[in-house]
């Protein structure tokens, strides 16, 4: 298992510093929650790590430098992500979605033929994300929570070693949140997980470590209890923090 090491990460858009010198270490097998007010730079940080936006500094996953590589190469190095709004291929079935996610290393020859059986990783992932019964349903017809799970399932069959999840439980019911949290526990057994989340209850239940971002910088870092006790965090979350607590 590999960990994530970010040093002096900077992203700016037309002079606006969205991420302003972030250092971040996520240990292998950790479930790290990134929290912070809107505009703190959480999603931009994930965008930078996955190659979607240009950034300076360095991002190492294991021994490999990620910055400067195109998106699809970073994905092939074992870094996967989800988006705030679930983006599955709505006009393909659940099975087809997973099969495509599993196939980035396929030879041209096998691409040009039909799928004759369900790959083992795909059927395992279907079990893990609890969508076996929906296998042949179009992904566009799934419930909101199921789409999010399908996205996580796609990361599993893609065999990523680092999962970056952007608000995975937004809009989910209480039961769905608990199921998602349990899923994170399973996933993190042999993978490193980073979660961007606004939901404080969810964070308290399932985070192992927490990093608070504010205005593009790391404000605080540590266990859930440490971060909650930090006066700087309370100040930034004034109102929001007290209400949630």
């Amino acid at each position: 298992m590999s960990g994530l090491r970010i040093r002096d990460l900077r992203v700016s858009f037309d002079g606006f510093k969205a991420v302003d010198g972030v250092d971040l270490d996520v240990a292998p097998g950790d479930i790290r929650f990134l929290i912070g007010p809107n505009g703190a730079g959480k999603t931009t940080l994930v965008d930078a790590v996955t190659g979607l936006v240009k950034a300076s500094g360095s991002v190492h996953f294991g021994d490999a430098e990620l910055l400067g590589r195109p998106v699809h190469q970073i994905a092939r190095m074992g870094v996967g992500r989800t988006f705030q709004t679930a983006t599955v291929f709505e006009e393909l079935t659940v099975l087809q979605n997973l099969d495509i996610a599993a196939g980035a290393g396929r030879s041209p020859w096998s691409l040009l033929r039909r799928r004759t059986s369900v790959p083992t990783v795909v059927s395992e992932a279907l079990e893990t994300i609890n969508l076996t019964a929906q296998r042949d349903q179009l992904a566009g017809t799934l419930a909101h929570g199921q789409k999010q799970w399908l996205e996580i399932g796609m990361l599993l069959v893609q065999d990523v070693r680092l999962l970056l999840l952007d608000e995975p439980v937004a809009g989910m019911s209480h039961d769905e949140r608990d199921a998602t949290g349990a899923l994170l526990g399973v996933v993190s057994r042999d993978r490193t997980v980073v979660v961007i989340e606004h939901d404080m209850d969810f964070m308290r239940s399932f985070a192992r470590t927490v990093t608070v971002l504010h205005a593009g910088k790391v404000l605080s870092e540590g266990s859930v209890a440490q971060v909650q006790a930090d006066p700087k965090v309370q100040e930034v979350y004034l109102g929001q923090g007290t209400r949630d607590a």
């Binding site: 994905a75 291929f89 980035a104």
Partner: peptide
């Protein structure tokens, strides 16, 4: 199937390593 996926969400396909 992959071609349809690219048509409907090119960025997503990129993040799958294609």
């Amino acid at each position: 199937e992959l071609l349809v996926a690219v048509r409907d969400s090119e960025e997503r396909v990129r993040f799958l390593g294609y």
